[in-house]
Amino acid sequence: MAPKILLVEDDPRLGEQIAAHLREAGFEPEWVTRGDLALDAQPRDYALVILDLMLPGTYGLDVLKHLRQRSDLPVLVLSAKNDTATKVRALELGADDYVTKPFWPEELLARVSARLRRPGLARTGRMQFGALALDAESRTVEVEGAAVELTRVEFDLLLALAKRPNQALSRAWLAENVLDPDRDGTERTLDVHVSRLRKKLGSCGALVGTVWGVGYRLDAKVDA
């Protein structure tokens, strides 16, 4: 089922455009033009709220305050006022993120997706990325159902990437957090470990992507 998004935006053209882009991206937007209408909304009906702070009738921050009193529904604030005080106030009142006008439709969608991804959830137990299966507790890895033997460093490396799929981790961070500091903890050593890991993963080796200038990332559709 498509996640429902409550859009509170007074400008008719912008509201229509945002709703269209959300719909196109596979969300189910419900658009209201007035803050007081947003006050009546049932938070449990929605996955996320996009709230314009400059609203007629009710000030956007009041809507935010009201929403926060009733639920911890993610709130993404739209602001034309690029001033720090308003942003800080919105974040203090419980906004999860903000996007400053003008913004690209993709930019807004990226922020929405990032919010719905629920980051920070510690991934434990079994994780599946296509043909690659990984169990953090038993420290086992399977590719297309067949077990793959990994060294301790290789497994930790894969686990670190798997905990944040599709997000790059820097080589410096990986070298510091995955490699054994008593032995050779340089980034070059890390590259060697990555290259060995890719070979062992065989057909799934390509999932471990190199990110230019950054480090590595597990490129995967999440099937956790």
């Binding site: 690029n82 800080v88 993709e106 990032a114 790059a168 230019w212």
Partner: peptide
Amino acid sequence: ARHAPIARARGIALEHAIPPEPTVTLGDVT
């Protein structure tokens, strides 16, 4: 995210990495 649409349109790979640990400083966010 602000520059990703333009980077994508220009065919440029814009990548980023943030540490899993919170990284907070003091200042004017804008």
